[in-house]
């Protein structure tokens, strides 16, 4: 547990700071060797809070509106000013997702799997938000940007927006399947095995979203019980649990495994060679 810091003697640790948190005795917090990972980690709750506020109370993009909405409803939604505002906030902040995903990749590096898993994870984490976040924002923002667009065009943008929003879940499937398989194949037990299986459900149910391209009403439509709500019931607790365990994994990471302290570790060896 507390294998990362060797200089600590029991009783003289600063209160509230765990031996494994990466802080050396007597050093200020900003010299924490895991500060990079903690910053990435804490960007996630900020990002998701922003996401939730913008999606629900600000624009009512979520929960998804019906694919069966009347033209008047679609036009009223697409031209609402809050929607443009919401899109701008998300377009500006979507980069935070990349920062948050860095924390997965840092921990995946410690797993005994091929680097191909991390590269594929990264490719998935890039393509997913482009299609699933940026595309819909560009579509939804246009109605308020130029209010005299033809309603027919707005209806198409509405379909385009929601289909790329919810129908692209398959893009994330690659990303999470790489994480899930890495957890299951990993012999270092960086994350618990059962979480690997939970991740398998997570990415398989995401594939179900493919039905939104066929059904326009009912449980398999983009606002349906099985294509959307059921996935959310699985996804939201999973996301919280996975971040909790990622946090524990950062805490338990021994300092000699941190790539950013490697040059320091390498020094004695270099000196030895020089001598």
């Amino acid at each position: 547990m507390s294998d990362s810091v060797s200089v600590d003697a029991p009783g003289i640790k600063a209160p509230g700071i765990k031996a494994s948190s990466g802080v050396r005795q007597g050093e200020p917090w900003y010299k924490n060797k895991k500060l990079d990972q903690y910053l990435c980690f804490w960007s996630v709750p900020i990002f998701y809070t922003l996401f939730g506020l913008v999606f629900v109370p600000l624009s009512w993009m979520m929960p998804p509106r019906s694919p069966d909405s009347s033209m008047a409803e679609i036009v009223a939604f697409m031209q609402s000013e809050n929607l443009l505002f919401a899109c701008v906030i998300l377009i500006l902040s979507v980069g935070l997702a990349a920062v948050g995903n860095a924390v997965y990749m840092t921990q995946m590096r410690r797993m005994t799997v091929s680097p191909a898993f991390r590269f594929a994870f990264m490719a998935g984490s890039i393509t997913g938000p482009v299609v699933g976040c940026l595309f819909p924002m560009f579509c939804f923002g246009l109605g308020a940007f130029r209010p005299d667009y033809d309603p027919e065009i707005l209806a198409m943008l509405y379909d385009f927006g929601y289909l790329s929003f919810i129908g692209c879940l398959g893009c994330f499937c690659l990303m999470w399947s790489m994480l899930g398989l890495s957890i299951l194949l990993d012999k270092n037990n960086i994350l618990p095995k059962w979480l690997g299986y939970y991740t398998v459900w997570q990415f398989v149910t995401e594939l179900f979203a493919a039905t939104v391209w066929i059904a326009k009403t009912g449980p398999f439509a983009w606002d349906g019980l099985l294509a959307f709500w059921f996935n959310m019931v699985l996804y939201v607790p999973w996301q919280i649990i996975v971040y909790f365990y990622i946090y524990k994994a950062i805490q338990n990471q021994p300092e000699h495994e941190l790539p950013n302290v490697l040059p320091v570790k390498a020094q004695p060896m270099l000196q030895g060679n020089a001598l």
Partner: peptide, 11 residues
């Protein structure tokens, strides 16, 4: 393995 039972019950 216990983790497989977790998977089976959940599945």
């Amino acid at each position: 393995q216990p983790s497989m039972w977790f998977f089976i019950i959940g599945d």
